[in-house]
């Protein structure tokens, strides 16, 4: 029997991702207590940091769900057969609310972000030279405490930005959850993976 290993992200995507894979027919429960792994018959589920999911899938976990922002940032060598109908948000540039600035005027600015590659690429495209301050979280406080001039961060409703006296001035990209597949599993488990992708498409399209 073909074993299938799935990696799901901790955090805001977890509940949607878990119900989605269950609707795809992967019947598996959330790991108990502080465990990060659960098993049910042929299925094994691993719960990892959202930034690590594409790395696990790139190096051998068969299938995963994570954000498009993370896959782009990690430049992971994985298949991306489907975008999913949850985790919708955007990656944006935000500056302190009392400053009026255009992107072109941000030459030499220091930008705090969890997404150094995407941010650098975005500014390179418009020929604006910026300095990146890489942070692992809570970037919204960086301009307020003076370690950066602006941030590149995920925005859902904009509440966190508002509470930290920031305003969104440009969108880098739309973000959504993605189904990702290990390139070798796509070959060695061809029929099973294709069946699951079709099933995911049906679930997503509500058919």
């Amino acid at each position: 029997m073909n074993k299938l290993r799935v990696a799901l992200p901790k955090g805001r995507l977890f509940n949607d991702a878990l119900s989605f894979i269950k609707m795809m027919g992967i019947q598996i429960s959330e790991p108990e207590g502080r465990k990060l792994l659960s098993k049910n018959g042929m299925y094994e589920m691993l719960v990892a940091r959202v930034f690590d999911v594409p790395v696990y899938v790139e190096y051998g976990i068969d299938l995963g769900i994570t954000g498009s922002d993370v896959v782009e940032e990690r430049e992971s060598d994985v298949f991306i057969p489907l975008s999913l109908p949850f985790g919708k948000c955007r990656l944006s540039i935000a500056v302190p609310e009392n400053i009026n600035v255009s992107l072109k005027e941000m030459d030499g600015w220091r930008i705090a972000t969890k997404y150094p590659h995407i941010t650098k690429k975005f500014f390179d495209k418009i020929n604006v030279d910026i300095e990146i301050v890489e942070l692992k979280g809570a970037t919204e406080i960086a301009p307020g405490i003076g370690i950066a001039d602006a941030i590149a961060e995920i925005v859902e409703k904009g509440t966190t930005l508002k509470e930290n006296h920031l305003k969104e001035i440009a969108k880098i990209s739309d973000v959504s959850a993605l189904l990702i597949v290990n390139r070798i599993s796509q070959k060695t488990k061809f029929d099973l993976i294709n069946h699951l992708i079709n099933k995911a498409k049906e679930v997503r399209n509500g058919s």
């Binding site: 790139e58 190096y59 060598d77 390139r183 070798i184 599993s185 060695t188």
Partner: peptide, 21 residues
């Protein structure tokens, strides 16, 4: 294949024992 210079026939070698090519 990830590189652009290929002309026609391409191939990939893999094993189910490791998760990358």
């Amino acid at each position: 294949r990830p590189l652009p210079y290929y002309n026609d026939i391409i191939f990939e070698i893999y094993s189910s024992k490791i998760g990358y090519y």
